[in-house]
Design a protein around this nucleic acid. Structure first.
Length: 425
DNA sequence: TGTCCACTGGAAGGGAGGGCTT
DNA sequence: AAGCCCTCCCTTCCAGTGGACA
């Protein structure tokens, strides 16, 4: 039985009091500042919304809309628009005087569901009422899932729109077999019709597709350009009005948030995060106004939090590789090669009593660290010195090392120093 | 111009693990 | 319990690469 010590009970009673009693900066649900919130009106995306609507309207007539590929960098409103279109089309289908059409709009984030089986299972489970049971997360053959999905989907006349967000990730990871089957499924369906919307931030991914899939998938292409500073300002202002009381935001705060992100990426998602975190910092300090200073603090916090989260969630072997790179840098070798890192890694792996991976695998892990932005690894040729990656650390050395050494599994290598120095140059 | 280095990066496949069917 | 299927992580193999150097 767990008992509360008396003193602690008193502390717990009061611990939130000062924060609860302090006036909140937020008017209501602060989630309106989260990128996942879809407002009733999406700003500066009229053209794209109209274009998609002109294609999807076929669904409301019971016909198959053309497949669509949507391109644009992160934070340009692709996902928000896709979800918004989903809300609108379901609403429009419900408003039809003649309730003849069953329109389904299925959104799948391929960053989360990135296997062939997963995508088919996810679509299939949207027709749960027509199955006797759910399709299990694993265990069936992909063919079986596909056949069942096709059979159940085709039971009644309907139009199914499947949105595959981050479709490029899915193709890179699992190939285009599923897309081939999904784009071809209409040949076999008698009652239902399926159309696909692929969302990608990589314009080149279609090069990887089988030509048949490419031509079927990209009936229509829509590009989402990055927002400029003025557009970001409008978006921030729209959300700020929903989120904050009047007078909470100091003059210039929204402009600064927009300017920072417009300068770097034109990314609305990050601009909203910046504003939200700035507000949270102000609130935590029990201040009643959000100032430009809070925005600057928020920017630093977001950057550091990203690094901390990325490092913390790395698998053990990747942590060892990153630690090897940090230790190499610490020992004065600021431009390390794959060979240097592998030598250091082997020492660490030996000491930590984990299995030692091959150099081939470690090279892949270095690429992954590069993709996460924790290191910068560029392939460089040194002539007779060979061709290899030159690896530079992109994160604060000491903080990251300290963070890694906190991992209990890395306890055996805590305080480890490299004996070897690079022989390069 | 050919050689050489130290890899890179693609492909194939093994094995473990998780979950389902028979 | 055995067999099957899928995914993930990893190894092994090997052709290809870019630029310095002889």
């Amino acid at each position: 039985m767990w008992c509360k010590p008396k003193g602690e009970a008193k502390l717990q009673e009061n611990i939130f009091k000062e924060y609860l009693e302090g006036k909140s900066i937020f008017k209501r649900d602060r989630n309106v500042l989260r990128p996942s919130y879809i407002p009733d009106k999406l700003l500066h995306r009229d053209e794209q919304i109209k274009h998609i609507a002109s294609i999807l309207v076929s669904a409301l007539r019971g016909d198959q809309p053309s497949n669509i590929l949507v391109f644009g960098k992160t934070g340009t409103g692709k996902t928000a628009t896709a979800k918004y279109m989903g809300k609108e089309i379901i609403k429009a289908a419900g408003d039809l005087s003649e309730p003849l059409k069953d329109v389904r709009y299925i959104y799948i984030n391929c960053e989360i569901v990135d296997t062939q089986y997963g995508v088919l299972q996810n679509i299939g489970n949207h027709f749960i009422e027509e199955f006797d049971e759910r399709i299990p997360p694993t265990g069936w053959s992909t063919e079986r899932v596909y056949n069942l999905l096709w059979e159940k989907m085709d039971k009644v006349p309907r139009v199914v729109v499947v949105v595959l967000d981050e479709i490029d990730r899915f193709v890179y990871k699992s190939g285009d077999d599923t897309l081939y089957h999904l784009t071809k499924i209409n040949d076999d369906l008698k009652n239902a019709k399926l159309s696909l919307i692929g969302i990608s931030n990589d314009l080149k991914f279609t090069e990887m597709l089988d030509p048949r899939v490419r031509s079927r998938l990209s009936d229509e292409k829509i590009v989402f350009p990055p927002y400029d500073a003025d557009q970001l300002k409008d978006i921030l202002r729209q959300r700020a009005e929903m989120a904050f009381e009047v007078g909470v935001i100091e003059e210039g705060v929204i402009g600064l948030c927009a300017a920072v992100e417009a300068h770097e990426h034109g990314d609305a998602r990050r601009a909203l995060d910046l504003l939200r975190v700035a507000a949270e910092i102000a609130e935590r300090n029990q201040e009643t106004e959000i100032s430009e200073n809070h925005v600057i603090k928020a920017k630093n916090k977001i950057e550091l939090d990203c690094v901390i989260e990325a490092v913390r969630t790395l698998p053990l072997q990747s942590k060892l590789v990153l630690l090897a790179i940090l230790l190499g840098e610490e020992s004065g070798n600021s431009k390390q090669m794959t060979g240097d890192v592998y030598t250091a890694y082997k020492e660490l792996a030996k000491k930590s009593a984990t299995g030692i991976l091959t150099q081939r695998r470690v090279a892949d892990l270095i690429s992954e660290l590069d993709m996460l932005g924790l290191v910068s690894a560029r392939v460089k040729s040194f002539g007779r010195g060979g061709r290899t990656r030159e690896i530079l650390v992109s994160v604060p050395l000491l903080e990251t090392k300290r963070l890694l050494e906190k991992d209990p599994l890395l306890e055996p290598v805590r305080g480890f120093k490299l004996k070897l120095q690079s022989t390069l140059m």
